[in-house]
Design a protein around this nucleic acid. Structure first.
Length: 514
DNA sequence: GACCCTACGTCCATGATGAC
DNA sequence: GTCATCATGGACGTAGGGTC
């Protein structure tokens, strides 16, 4: 959003300096560590206790403010009484306490794992915790997997045969000014980090110094059956404790924060983005603001980004979601929208056609509606394949030229779940019946010229039009012609398949006399 | 380690709307 | 008409995974 910067992300946190932060693209968010937090580090064996009385929403920043303990607090957890045997081929899981993800402090993956521990997970747990993504600045590597004829892959039956990757922590950037405690997030690409260290300045104007960190975590993926990722298993091994504080600027929502954000967006669907960002509502009144859900939502654009993703995912749920949205749209515009063919549950093809009265009138020859000897304009019909979020569905539209506004305008829209002859049959049935209706309303004679459409070059459109043309005329109470004659008229329209309407109009007198 | 690719996340220009 | 606010979408940098 224009004018918004990362400044606003954390201005409600008292320990954080707002000065000078812009974005990750120029000046990374920097923070003054709280002076009151003691830097107490104990051996890992003394830290194996869950933090008591975990809050209801442990990822809520209002409950868990930015922790800049230096060095960062070790992750607390309850170790398994019967840990699995170490199997890592590089022995990285030797002498490491194992735990379960629910036994970590707060009972969730917070993105700042610190200290030696290991976890075995299945795919559903791994993905539910966002693939154990970390908030540390890291540089990853897939190691020697697959190199030099080695056969370490995700399909390996055991951990020692699995694919191993690691994430190397890149530490932090600290200000060279002794009186400045501002911490800056290092860039992850080697060249970018080098440039950042050389050229970038701290908010206070002093230069930056890179403090590397030796902490490295490992992930082994194994046991996958074929390409079915849901069968994959994981062993995560966290490395040595980090020698620096947490980074003040987090990049990702945790799994719980994602869930909270989704709920927040669900509740506030009818609100504008800024309304729902500022404060939501539920049946009991106001809910918390988006920035209280997660630290990275302090940036309104990040919230907007997740909101867009949420709406897109909702759109892609083509079942009841689409029906609800369409129903809601029709309700809002029931005074303007005229529903035409609706084959839901009636035919094999799903086609829902609709337009407005004004669009219906555009289907008639323009000379009727606008004074003056205007020529009959043609109609173009085409299907847009990427309009709906379901790529198998098509928006079929018939358009015509409107001299009054000097623009091509739509006359009929159809949602269709395909583009077969029958789909076009139902779309053109709507078009032809609408022309009947409009012509009768304007006391016009029903004659073939009214239906001089130009169809596209596909057989489906041509055959669909002929089929609809025949059915509509056969059903017309005043029809005196045989099926064969009507069909020949329809074919004649389509045989003049051209972008020039004049070519269609010319043979009409002969047809009518046939 | 270098390079490539892609998804993610943020910035920014632009247009719509409403208040004054 | 001017200005402020908000919404939208494209551009672009970054992070992370994959490959060599």
């Amino acid at each position: 959003m224009k004018g918004s910067t990362g400044d606003s992300q954390l201005h409600h946190i008292t320990s954080i300096s707002n000065a000078g932060h812009n974005t990750q693209n120029n000046a990374p968010l920097t923070v003054q560590p709280p002076s009151t937090v003691p830097a107490l580090q104990k051996p890992i064996q003394d830290k194996t206790v869950i933090v008591p009385s975990a809050p209801a929403h442990p990822t809520n920043i209002a409950v868990y403010p930015v922790d800049l303990t230096d060095p960062a607090r070790l992750t607390t957890f309850v170790p398994l009484e019967s840990p699995p045997a170490p199997q890592c081929r590089h022995k990285n899981d030797m002498s490491v306490p194992f735990t379960h993800i629910d036994l970590l402090e707060g009972g969730f993956w917070n993105g700042f794992p610190n200290g030696k521990f290991a976890i075995d997970l299945d795919y559903s747990t791994f993905s539910a915790h966002k693939n154990l993504a970390v908030q540390w600045a890291t540089r990853g590597s897939s190691g020697a997997n697959g190199k030099n004829g080695q056969s370490f892959t995700v399909n390996g039956e055991t951990i020692s045969q699995g694919r191993e990757s690691y994430k190397q922590c890149l530490g932090i950037l600290q200000c060279r000014n002794e009186n400045c405690d501002i911490i800056t997030r290092p860039k992850t690409h080697a060249k970018s980090l080098e440039k950042q260290t050389i050229t970038q300045q701290c908010q206070c104007g002093a230069s930056l110094e890179h403090f590397p960190c030796e902490s490295r975590s490992y992930l082994i993926e194994y046991g996958q059956v074929g390409t079915d990722i849901s069968t994959c298993k994981y062993r995560y091994i966290n490395g040595q404790p980090h020698n620096h504080p947490r980074l003040p600027y987090v990049k990702h929502l945790t799994a719980q924060e994602s869930k909270d954000t989704k709920e927040h967006l669900q509740i506030n669907q009818d609100q504008t983005p800024l309304q729902s960002y500022a404060a939501g509502k539920d049946s009991e009144g106001k809910t918390k603001s988006a920035r209280e859900i997660g630290q990275c939502l302090g940036n309104p654009d990040t919230f907007r980004y997740h909101r867009k993703n949420f709406k897109n995912s909702a759109k892609s749920e083509v079942g009841s979601s689409f029906i609800n949205q369409f129903h809601s749209w029709i309700k809002r515009h029931r005074d303007e929208v005229i529903m035409r063919e609706n084959t839901v549950g009636r035919e094999d093809e799903c086609v829902i056609s609709f337009h407005t009265k004004w669009m219906r009138d555009q289907l008639l020859p323009k000379a009727v509606l606008i004074e003056g000897p205007l020529p009959l304009e043609g109609m173009l019909t085409d299907g847009a394949h990427k309009y709906w979020s379901d790529l198998n569905s098509v928006l079929i539209s018939t358009t015509t030229f409107c001299p009054g506004i000097d623009r091509w305008v739509p006359c009929m829209f159809s949602f269709a779940n395909g583009v077969t002859t029958r789909h076009y049959h139902w779309h053109f049935t709507s078009v032809i019946k609408s022309i009947f209706e409009a012509a009768l309303e304007y006391d016009m004679e029903i004659k073939d010229e009214l239906f001089a459409l130009i169809v596209d070059f596909s057989d489906a459109q041509r055959l669909g039009f002929i089929s609809a043309f025949v059915d509509c005329f056969m059903d017309w109470k005043d029809n005196t012609r045989t099926h064969a004659v009507i069909q020949s008229v329809g074919k004649c329209f389509c045989s003049a398949n051209s972008s020039k309407v004049k070519r269609i109009i010319i043979p009409l007198p002969a047809i009518r006399s046939a």
